[in-house]
């Protein structure tokens, strides 16, 4: 007789995916607010500096938020690596011919296929981004603490840096688009009446985040914003 003992939620793929979805949602909220905040670079040096200072005037809240984000990111990454490793063990052989099987739009197909790829690349990008604009420790890129505007403009005047940000944020776009739809499925929050709205909302939020994050380095690299 089979012993049908239930497993703790976090020992099941569904439970792990739920945590991936919730931590992903927190990070989603962050990138959205972060992107909108960064738009203030177009209002000029003083506006974005004032924004930075208002955030830094609540150090407890700032560090609290940073801690939450860090925990979410680490959890998200650790669990997805664990899930991907299990999936590899579950499917060790590939088929001779790789068929598309499902008829899916190019965006959807590409986004779902690149999840495991866009994730780790994002992680490298996030580390570079923090080293560049938060800590200011990237060799060759001058940095002055508190001078957000100058740091941004000087950084993106380097086409390599701008290019890296643009590519990474396009990948983030794919990741967010797939993730934004997937998380509703993962958490079981689906209904035929909402499905279209969910997809549109994920697309819209992703488009806003991606467009903002691509436009900022592009305009600076093109010399439209100067010091």
């Amino acid at each position: 007789m089979l012993k049908a003992e239930p497993l703790p939620l976090l020992a099941t793929g569904i439970g792990k995916k739920a945590v991936v979805a919730i931590t992903g949602l927190v990070l989603y909220g962050f990138v959205f607010v972060h992107a909108l905040g960064n738009l203030q670079v177009f209002l000029g040096r003083e506006a974005i500096k004032a924004y930075r200072e208002s955030l830094h005037s609540f150090p407890k809240a700032l560090w609290g938020a940073r801690a939450v984000l860090l925990v979410c990111l680490l959890t998200h990454v650790t669990l997805t690596i664990d899930i991907a490793a299990k999936a590899r063990a579950a499917r060790t052989t590939r088929y001779k011919v790789s068929a598309p099987i499902a008829e899916q739009g190019i965006l959807q197909r590409y986004a779902r296929k690149t999840m495991v790829l866009s994730g780790p690349i994002l992680l490298v990008y996030i580390m570079f981004h923090l080293a560049h604009l938060t800590a200011g420790v990237v060799p060759g890129l001058p940095f002055k603490a508190g001078e957000v505007y100058d740091n941004l403009v000087r950084g993106f005047q380097n086409p390599m840096v701008a290019g890296l940000y643009i590519v990474a944020n396009l990948l983030l776009g794919l990741h967010l688009y797939h993730g934004g739809v997937a998380l509703f499925q993962t958490l079981g929050l689906r209904h035929p009446q909402w499905d279209a709205h969910t997809r549109h909302a994920a697309f819209l939020v992703t488009a806003v985040v991606t467009a903002t994050n691509v436009i900022i380095p592009t305009t600076i690299a093109a010399g439209l914003i100067r010091q």
Binding site: K17, I83, A87, I101, K113, V181
Partner: peptide, 29 residues
């Protein structure tokens, strides 16, 4: 393995069972 929302199962299913059922199962679990 765990589902990562590729939805190839639904396309391959000879009975065209919808991945909506996976969302319901997730909710039930």
């Amino acid at each position: 393995g765990a589902c990562s929302n590729h939805y190839l199962c639904e396309a391959a299913c000879p009975k065209e069972i919808s991945v909506q059922w996976i969302a319901r199962m997730n909710r039930d679990l």
